[in-house]
């Protein structure tokens, strides 16, 4: 944990910089979603746009977690707790989804409606 005044002043500079990066990424997200020129995949919203949007969001979230919440110099125990939670959250999401991508409820590319 950075404790000396100089280390803290340096951190403050870092926080300001990351703050600006976050602003920029937010504008980027809106731009990708708004301008047709940046519309990847097919026209309109499709899985490509979802991936890009979520990727930017994940990047921003990681910046906040690692730098603002100083996970980068936190003790191992904390790392494990947080990562464990994220792991189980992903399990929650993936296994739910897995439960549906199964022959009974899954018909090729599109899920069968009304099977939920």
């Amino acid at each position: 944990m950075a404790d000396s005044p100089e280390a803290i002043k340096k951190s403050v500079k870092l926080y300001s910089f990351i703050g600006l990066v976050l602003f920029g990424c937010t504008l980027l997200t809106v731009a990708v979603a708004t301008f047709p020129a940046l519309d990847f995949g097919g026209h309109g919203f499709d899985y490509m746009d979802a991936i890009i949007g979520l990727a930017i969001a994940t990047f921003k979230a990681s910046l906040v977690a690692v730098i603002f919440m100083h996970l980068n110099h936190e003790k191992k125990a904390i790392y494990w707790i947080f990562l464990g939670a994220i792991f189980f959250a992903i399990c929650l999401i993936l296994l739910f989804a897995l439960a549906f991508f199964d022959p009974i409820t899954f018909d090729g590319l599109m899920p069968k409606f009304g099977q939920g």
Binding site: I81, F82, G84, A85, I86, F88, A89, I90, L92, I93, F96, A97, F100, P111, F113, Q115, G116
Partner: peptide
């Protein structure tokens, strides 16, 4: 960590509801 699970549950519900 518990809040991650809370909002994880909410967002996974969102994914569900949207896909289906």
């Amino acid at each position: 960590a518990s809040e991650v699970m809370l909002f994880g549950g909410l967002f996974s519900s969102y994914i569900f509801l949207r896909i289906f």
